[in-house]
Amino acid sequence: MVSQIQKSIQLVALMTAALVWANATAVCQEFKIETAIYAGDAKLPVAQNVTLFQNDLIVDLKVDFANPPNVLETKIYDSRQKKVTLLDHARSIRLEISDNRLLQMVDGLRRDISQKKDLQFLVSEVFEETEELETSRIVLKSPTIRYQVEGQRPTDSNYLPIHGEFLDIFTRLSASDPGGFPPFARLRLNESIKKMGWIPTSVEIEMGANALVPKGVKMKSTHVLIDGLSTDDLAKIEAAKKQWLGYPVVNLLKFRGIDQTASADNQSGETTATK
């Protein structure tokens, strides 16, 4: 009887140790993705980003082409607090939006677009999906929009949950920007990327002429996944944290420059932009 109890205790101890080890492994994921964005058939990028993943924190840096590059814009997502923060370095201000508020903005934009006949396709477009597993490629095609994604499975599958959050949160952010592209088609693409368990290596979009882009659009982004974070990467994260804490919070209208008279005393950071 005593032997059986001892075996049970040992089994519980082993299971507990395994769980602790698994959790420690899951929360110690550090990696980065370097992104370059190309317009049309251009050979040189028009923009580039470095996205740093450290446990539950994502720091996305839009950088210029200097050597070393300067940080132009910073976006921070805290998965634990379910909040995204945008830093405007030129004005030293920040905007904070909760996940729930961002979802409300997306729903509001969906209702607005649904009422405009010439833009309804942005919400209602139906995509045909083709999976080319031998080339790690997905193609999504509708009457107006065509996406092509090439991807890779990360060496560590623990990257995928936080990367999936990154895809959706940063796509939804466009709903907070009057000049942003509506997120609905890209959110549909995100579903396919997450389903495949991939991190994209390239994403191409072609859109025919329509009421939103009369001349159509063709864009491509390339993505390089790098395991681990360098000392320089960690320093960038610490600098972003200090700016996060040091910049005063403003509301959405002021941050987006929609209402230049908006009071800096309004600290909600979640006012919906009117159109």
Rank of each mutant, 00 (worst) to 15 (best):
K195H: 15
L140I: 07
A209E: 14
L61S: 02
V2H: 06
D41L: 11
R146M: 12
G151K: 04
Y38I: 03
R101M: 13
V27N: 10
I169R: 07
L229Q: 08
S114A: 15
A66N: 12
L103P: 01
L122T: 02
K195Y: 07
L19N: 11
S136R: 10
R172T: 03
K116E: 07
E191I: 06
Q48M: 09
K195P: 03
I113P: 00
T271W: 00
D78Y: 01
V50I: 15
G228R: 01
E125A: 01
K7T: 11
V217P: 00
R101D: 13
V59P: 00
A175N: 01
L44Y: 08
V71S: 05
N251D: 15
Q148F: 03
E132A: 05
P45K: 00
L234C: 14
A273W: 13
T85F: 03
T261E: 11
I97K: 01
F255Y: 15
D168E: 13
E191G: 10
W21Q: 01
F53S: 00
I113E: 01
D60R: 06
Q152I: 08
K117M: 14
Q4S: 13
L86K: 02
D60P: 00
T130N: 07
P178N: 09
D156F: 09
A36E: 12
I199K: 02
I93F: 08
K141V: 05
S136P: 05
P45M: 00
A36R: 14
N266I: 06
G151L: 06
Q54I: 05
G208N: 04
S92F: 07
Y159R: 04
S8I: 09
D107R: 05
Y147P: 07
I145K: 02
Q152Y: 03
Y38W: 08
L212Y: 15
N100S: 12
N49Y: 15
V63W: 00
S263V: 08
I93M: 11
E270Q: 08
N251A: 02
P200M: 09
G40P: 02
H89I: 03
Q54M: 10
D107C: 02
K275V: 12
A240T: 06
F184R: 05
G257C: 10
F31K: 00
F121A: 12
L61N: 05
N70S: 15
P248T: 05
D233G: 01
T271Q: 11
K7V: 04
K82A: 08
T272W: 12
E34N: 14
T25L: 13
L122S: 02
N158W: 07
A235F: 05
S3Y: 14
G228E: 05
A262H: 07
D227Y: 07
I138W: 04
S157C: 08
E96A: 10
D78I: 03
L19T: 08
W244Q: 12
R94A: 09
